[in-house]
Amino acid sequence: MDARQQSLQELQQIKNMMERSSKFISLSGISGIAAGICALAGVWFASQKINYHVNGDYNLSKIKDESQVSLQNDLLLIALLTFLAALISSFLFTYLRSKRTGIPLWGTTTYRLLWNIGIPLAAGGLFLIRSMQLEHYELIAPGCLIFYGLALVNASKYTLGEVRFLGYGQIVLGIINLWMIGYGLYFWAAGFGLLHIIYGIMMWYKYERVSKGINND
């Protein structure tokens, strides 16, 4: 092996160590796809429910009869189940990937990533709970997208950098949604569903398609 080859290999080793030690790189693209599919399923169930109750009016704040409470509870339940399903399935594929690459799932980088996702999400969650208490239901859909997007942008420093672009997408959708109140479900389908799936496919294509390579860029 000549000197050039050796240097190239050494630089690659250095880059690999730097990434492994500072970033959570086991995040699997399939996790994104799975979360997206869960979101689409959730949106579908929710839209069925809303249609059943009020014939296609997506604006929750306009629902003013006694069925409102039961609809609200149903929707919250759907949202919760969707979230859990997305969380579990995305965890599963990332777990499988970390097994394959031999990088432990739980470590300093994981902790750092979760903490940095957690702060914007927790703040956003409280904000949205309070919005619901004040009956500003119209803020829930855009709020979820915006705070989730901010969490992703913040987290991108601690995991695959491309997560940043997923975050930008969610924020933009959330902001547009602020001026298109009543179409929240469509924006959720686009943001939590389609964007996740597109992102997941791209990440899978870039990092995981070649089963042995982590960095082939």
Binding site: E10, Q13, I14, K15, M17, M18, S21, S22, T108
Partner: peptide
């Protein structure tokens, strides 16, 4: 040594 130094370059402490 290469590993130790690479890691320390990108982490405040380890």
């Amino acid at each position: 040594r290469l590993g130790i130094m690479s890691t320390l370059m990108v982490n405040d402490q380890i």
